[in-house]
Design a protein around this nucleic acid. Structure first.
Length: 415
DNA sequence: TCTGGGGTCCTAGGACCC
DNA sequence: TCTGGGGTCCTAGGACCC
């Protein structure tokens, strides 16, 4: 038996948890650079504000309706997520953190009635300890638990829905749109329609062989999961296979110097993530681009990679080759809008192929460890590489960000 | 004026091996 | 006239997720 616990309107709810004045009011949270709307409270959804819409197109509507608008505050959301996950783990250690606001639990030890009480206990505990509302969907497979969660969120006031029985499945699946099924996106929806598949029930009852011939194994798994056959197992937390760091700039960037600072900063962010998961990487890919929305501006987008002889997790090693890549692709005269980096060929630090002709550099290890420890103790970026820049004029503006209530001593909530 | 930032998995095709 | 059968690895592109 799977339960999917999903926080309602997560980012918007985090803002509300520390600011009760937002209760019952429409709230939206914006993406980096205050570009797009990426979270909405129920009140904001009712105003017709769509997910992912560019903010500038909806700004007037927001102002007219006194919508409370926030820049994203990832320090806060990440910390709140950890609190929720810690509570969930205390209920059920057999769990998979699926995203910042969702987790699957495997709960096999319960009888029919107990499980509802158990789910309610989880909801109440999370609400009491964090202030965040969650919904819980329960069923026999992950795909069905996802559907149950949708129902819990939209059609019940209880916040818990049990979709294990055939009776409940017969009631729900005929009305559940195919595009809302986990794993069916826009393209698959379009391709399934000629097969007269419009609802979750249509897909469940479809001819498996016919669909397998026309679609990938992904679709076959979804069909089987809808038939109560579990094909997508609970997964343990794995180290990332790919680490990306990229941002749009706060202003148009034209100089190589600004790009170098930005790319060095992103490299530093990514390398810290890399070390935190005890991995190292053998290379880096650097990319930059102009603003693709500005059709009249000359466009340029390019990337370049560079590999090291042996993997590293040291920021200084990586910044050095990142800059080398950047200089290869930089062309003067363009108005740059975004740059980023991707770490390549990530592997665990325990697996290490030494270079016969290079000696280990113990000093470098000590340096990196010390920097990390100081930053851990005294706050992010207490020490940083000068290559990252000091003024960082290219950096994003987040003028609507709420305080980092839970991770900064100087931004604690005042009661 | 103004349009985010991460991730994963699958498949096909090419290059190579014996 | 006629040209096998079985593998692996890598990459790009596409689809999906939050």
């Amino acid at each position: 038996m799977f339960a999917l616990v999903d926080c309602n309107n997560f980012y918007a709810s985090c803002e509300r948890a520390f600011n009760p004045a937002l209760e019952k009011k429409p709230v939206v949270v914006l993406s980096n650079n205050d570009g797009c709307i990426i979270a909405r409270s129920n009140e904001a959804k009712k105003l017709g504000i769509p997910m992912g819409a560019p903010y500038y197109q909806w700004r007037q509507r927001c102002e007219d309706n006194q919508v409370q608008v926030y820049s994203s505050n990832y320090a806060l959301y990440a910390d709140m997520s950890q609190r929720v996950m810690t509570i969930l783990r205390s209920f059920c250690p057999h769990m998979e953190v699926y995203s910042i606001d969702e987790a699957f639990l495997v709960i096999d030890q319960f009888t029919e009635n107990d499980v509802i009480a158990y789910a309610n206990d989880i909801r109440n505990t999370i609400k009491t300890h964090t202030g965040l509302p969650v919904s819980i969907g329960i069923s026999t497979t992950k795909t069905l638990a996802k559907i149950a969660n949708h129902i819990a969120k939209k059609h019940t006031s209880a916040g818990v829905y049990d979709l294990r029985s055939i009776t409940s499945q017969e009631k729900v699946l005929p009305h559940f749109p195919i595009g809302d099924v986990w794993g069916i996106g826009r393209q698959l929806k379009k391709k399934l329609e000629p097969f007269r598949i419009h609802t979750a029930k249509d897909l469940r009852d479809a001819d498996l062989k016919l669909l397998r011939k026309n679609f990938s194994v992904v679709v076959e798994k979804i069909i089987r999961e809808l038939r109560n056959v579990s094909c997508i197992p609970l997964e343990a937390i794995q180290p990332r296979k790919q680490i990306i760091s990229s941002r749009s700039f706060g202003k148009t960037v034209t100089s190589l110097n600004d790009l170098e600072e930005a790319v060095s900063t992103y490299t530093s962010i990514a390398c810290l993530k890399l070390r935190n998961q005890k991995s190292h990487a053998r290379g880096i890919h650097v990319f930059l681009q102009t603003n693709t929305f500005k059709k009249n501006d000359p466009q340029y987008a390019m990337g370049a990679s560079c590999m090291l002889p042996i993997p590293t997790a040291h920021t200084n090693d990586m910044i050095r080759i990142a800059k080398k890549c950047l200089r290869e692709i930089f062309k003067p005269g363009f108005k740059y809008h975004k740059a980023g980096i991707m770490l390549l060929d990530i592997s665990p630090q325990t697996i290490r192929q030494h270079d016969m002709f290079l000696s280990d550099n113990q000093k470098k290890e000590t340096l990196t460890d010390t920097i990390d420890q100081i930053n851990q103790k005294l706050g992010k970026n207490t020490l940083f590489y000068c290559a990252e820049g000091i003024e960082k004029s290219w950096q994003i503006k987040t003028c609507l960000r709420s305080p980092r209530y839970t991770t900064r001593w100087d931004e604690l909530v005042v009661v």
